[in-house]
């Protein structure tokens, strides 16, 4: 008989800034690889997904029109929060089987640094991707990137934290709101990430995180008309084709990356403006120039 009984955490979905249980009333077990214990995560349903998309859609206009400076500070705050929970996140990576303590901390550190990197992009992306166009005639002509809207994010199983953070922060810094499906195989780090986000001044609904079965959620994400773009990585050909086919009906933008495990650690290539560009729409404005 132990001296003190542990108080186990009830894991929840993160929707509209609230931690909620799944409407499905169902959970699914994952095994803690190091302790051999079992954790139960919410098995998010189609209804939960719709709530998440609704929350992301409602938060969209305000987040998109927030200044890049503000968005940058909020993403930087996420990095601060993750830094302060470094060991806890490392423990979550242990739970999903990331082998050595050094590897775990390296991944957490890389994820923190990735957030800092994208935080800095938030008030610079317009200058890199936009510009003035030299049209003939008396017109002032400029092109600026604007966020696509609601982006569905489907990170791969590994590296669960670093890939999820990279795929989340790129559209986020440009002013998109997010519905992320935690990697089905290794959901715990992302479920924990929700708690970090919840304490980082991220406005309610800007980031929504679901756990559950990919098969039960991703097709609804692809079909939903209020999801404007989907970001996925390392899908097999068949899944990617079906995702694109289903996205076609609402002309959703689908961005897919194939990235090796080592590739996610390459900060320069994973934190480039070309990781952000798939989630912006170029808006071109003409105005006559005359006295």
């Amino acid at each position: 008989m132990p001296q003190r009984v542990d108080v186990a955490k009830t894991w929840k979905l993160f929707i509209g800034g609230q931690f909620v249980r799944s409407e499905s009333g169902q959970s699914f077990p994952i095994e803690h690889r190091r302790h051999g214990t079992t954790l139960n995560l919410c098995r998010g349903s189609r209804k939960d997904l719709r709530d998440a998309v609704e929350a992301a859609h409602s938060a969209s206009e305000k987040w998109a029109s927030a200044s890049g400076y503000l968005r940058g500070q909020i993403i930087y705050r996420m990095a601060e929060m993750l830094e302060s929970r470094r060991s806890e996140m490392s423990e979550a990576l242990a739970a999903v089987g990331t082998s050595t303590p050094k590897k775990r901390l390296d991944e957490v550190d890389a994820a923190i640094d990735r957030l800092v990197g994208f935080a800095g992009w938030a008030d610079k992306i317009e200058q890199i991707l936009g510009g003035q166009n030299p049209v003939p005639g008396p017109y002032y002509n400029i092109t600026v990137p604007e966020p696509s809207g609601v982006v569905g994010v489907l990170p791969p199983d590994r590296p669960a934290l670093l890939a999820s953070i990279s795929m989340l922060a790129a559209p986020l810094c440009a002013g998109n709101t997010i519905v992320m499906l935690a990697p089905e195989g290794h959901p715990l780090p992302v479920a924990l990430l929700a708690e970090i986000i919840a304490t980082s001044d991220v406005p309610d609904g800007v980031i929504n995180i679901m756990t559950g079965k990919r098969e039960e959620l991703m097709w609804h994400l692809a079909d939903h008309r209020e999801v404007d773009a989907v970001s996925a990585a390392n899908l097999d050909d068949e899944t990617l084709t079906e995702l694109r086919q289903r996205a076609a009906e609402s002309l959703k933008r689908v961005h897919h990356d194939s990235v090796t495990a080592a590739g996610w650690s390459k900060h320069e290539s994973r934190c480039s403006p070309w990781n952000i560009e798939p989630f912006v729409e170029m808006k071109t404005m003409w105005h006559p120039s005359a006295c």
Binding site: N133, V135, N141, T143, M282, K283, T284, M285, W286, H287
Partner: peptide, 18 residues
């Protein structure tokens, strides 16, 4: 919208994204 014409309309050019 992808193109906004302000105090003009239907302007096009090769240098201007459409």
């Amino acid at each position: 919208a992808g193109v906004i014409w302000c105090n003009t309309y239907n302007q096009f050019d090769a240098a201007s994204p459409f």
